[in-house]
Amino acid sequence: MAENPFPLGRDQLLAAYRTMRTIREFEERLHVDFSRGDIPGFVHLYAGEEASAAGIMMHLTDKDRIASTHRGHGHCIAKGVDVKAMMGEIYGKVTGSCRGKGGSMHIADLDKGMMGANGILGAGAPLACGAGLAAKFRGDGGVGVSFVGDGASNQGMFLESLNLAAVWNLPVVFVVENNGYAESTSVEWAVAVDSYVDRAAGFGLPGVTVDGTDFFAVHEAAGEIVARAREGGGPALLECKMCRFYGHFEGDAQTYRGAGEVEDLRANRDCIKIFAQRVTETGVIRPAELTAIDREVLDLIEQAVAEAKAAPLPTAADLLTDVYVSY
């Protein structure tokens, strides 16, 4: 066995790969099933962005809370939400994470520290501040992590949260997943500053920009930021520059993209390919080990879809429950 040049052990490397591969297969399968008309509503796919979720979430435990985005499947999987329950939810079944009442945009699992995907862009940032605040009062060392895209990074809720977290010195990490597009609008046009590090500085926060296709870069930067927040060092901003393989939502014709853009991203900036190449070329992980994981993940997704399809729909009685704890 070759010497391991990575800051992670073999088990952790394999776990990171499994997380990213699970997200990818989950999203690729949804892309197919959605186009077949099997899935109600609409879905926003995280394919291409896996290194961010996997690299950050490896530093978190169940007591750490994340507030996710409309593009939340990857965050859910990386935070440990049950994949079959997620698939059930996306199919609108009673077996889903939210008993079919939330759907793709609202998958949550509070026990896993997943405070919910969120249909309102930027709304998760104050919630993550609240998670940080609760952790601070409890003194349990927990942190809150807010994910936003480059689009939501312009929301007042997000910007107010940067200031609030700094003023209250909260254990909160703000992650900007910059995939270049707010729906169809380019970050180059819509975000006036050139660097999120500058934007963070404007709120008195340290900021770091990393290549979000490089799992190891994300992992290292997130490690430092999360550890500092956990130890009372206050909030920080992490920008992950990354690639969205699909459109804003499924069915998006993506006419705003340049010619050959997606093909180029898939060929040259696929975070999973890059990860696999690095861990295998150093000899730390054998290709066969990754292939075995690929097979297991495929089986899991296949099972998840089959179970979701077979699962019962919610009934009329479910319509009226869970509005209030008591009313």
């Binding site: 809370r65 104050p126 609240g130 998670a131 409890r138 609030l164």
Partner: peptide
């Protein structure tokens, strides 16, 4: 310190209150 002044940022602190409530406060 269980009473906290806030900056003039209603979205942020009302949202933080909501988030903290969802986390057991």
């Amino acid at each position: 310190d269980r009473l906290m002044d806030t900056p003039l940022s209603e979205s942020a602190y009302i949202g933080a209150a909501v988030g903290a409530a969802a986390c057991g406060m």
